[in-house]
Simulated scan of single mutants.
Amino acid sequence: MSIWEKMLNLDRRWIFLLIGIACVVPFFTPLGLPILPSQEVVSIYDYMENLTTDNAIFVGFDFDPGTAAENMPMGVAVLRHAFARHIPVFITAYGPLGQGMAAMALDEITDEESDDYYVYVNWEDWASIREQGITDRAGIEEAWIAAGNTLSENAHGWVFEGRDVAFLGYLPYFHLVILGMSSSIASQYPTDIGGTPLEEMPMYQEHKSLRDIDLAVTTAGSSACVAWITYGREKIGLPVAFGVTAVMATDYYIYIQSGQIIGQMGGLRGAAEYETLLLRDGYTKSPGKAFVGMDVQSIAHLLIIFLVVLGNIAFFAGGFNKKTKLKGRR
């Protein structure tokens, strides 16, 4: 048996082993392969860069665990960006499982074991500051520090519940919820998921309806993202950006071309591009999960291409294209 025939009859389990190694090794030794952000992602990032504490955004976790590998890093990246710039964030979910995904994202961002975390300050913990009539972001942080609170070395800052974030969660028939929020957010969400009245939150006092919101970013694994276009963008002119899975991305480029959305993060690559921009501008200290995931994906794809090319070389160099049957195992 010639070397070419041995190659073509290689036990497929060796290929599975090689793919397994290619997927595992980059997690422990990241390669840091370069990622050039696309204009669709840069457009979202630049839009966020122009927002301040006087603005507010919605981030919709409109996906379930099935697409979390792609969608979760998008939501986490946008939240990190908003928290770093002290942009108030209302968090919603199109489906019941999306609420759990949003909770996991907040847990990741506020995990004290990570190198890039934010300290989450519960509503009750800064009640004394509100009682003094202090509700602006700068004043709250100044009073919080004056009370003796300090940040650890790895912490980026504080996230004050009700001032920086309102976790609204899931409601059924979400397209109707979007319609209702165009008149009043509190009419649909009287309280957040923890039971805190929305009308008592300083961020709600400044942004009472979707008409007062400056951007809605929907991270979706289905057509749920279209609801934000239909009932948000077209009805009241709400600026919208998408974060969708790779297989969905091409379906929604028409909304970029028509100017109906600000931009789009497509798949793991789109999330990694946003993470690259955050790292570039110092909002994070280390690459995110999508950036590392792109190393895994790229190495696996390169290995598959190499094996395909090698198989074709063996096929033609061994003259098997002239034969009707190969010898060896089935």
Rank of each mutant, 00 (worst) to 15 (best):
P37N: 13
E142F: 11
I134N: 05
G98F: 06
S43V: 00
W14N: 03
L31S: 04
F320V: 06
L198N: 01
I299H: 00
I193N: 09
Y283A: 13
V25M: 01
E70N: 06
F83L: 14
R163I: 04
T284L: 07
T110E: 05
E206S: 15
G162E: 02
H207V: 06
G266S: 14
V42K: 15
G169M: 10
M104V: 09
I44T: 08
R269C: 02
F63D: 00
A82P: 01
E131W: 11
R85K: 14
E200N: 15
S187Q: 10
Y204E: 03
A300E: 02
T67Q: 13
H86Y: 10
I236P: 07
T191N: 03
L33F: 13
V89T: 14
T92K: 00
H207Q: 08
E200V: 03
Y173S: 13
L10Y: 01
L303M: 07
F316D: 01
F61V: 12
D107T: 14
R269L: 13
G195L: 12
P88G: 03
E108S: 14
R85N: 09
G318S: 06
G311K: 04
Y170A: 04
A166L: 05
H156W: 13
P73A: 06
A249C: 05
G266V: 13
L307V: 02
A246L: 06
V292N: 00
V119K: 15
E40H: 06
G267I: 06
D116Y: 06
I185E: 00
G311Q: 08
T250W: 02
G148C: 06
V247H: 06
G139S: 06
A146L: 10
I3Q: 10
G157S: 08
E234Y: 09
T135A: 12
Q205M: 12
N122L: 11
M101F: 01
I236G: 10
N312K: 08
V177M: 14
A102L: 12
P88D: 07
G328R: 04
G237A: 09
G60V: 10
V119N: 10
P197S: 05
W228K: 09
V76R: 07
L278F: 12
I134T: 12
D46T: 13
A246Q: 12
I129C: 05
R211I: 03
F316Y: 14
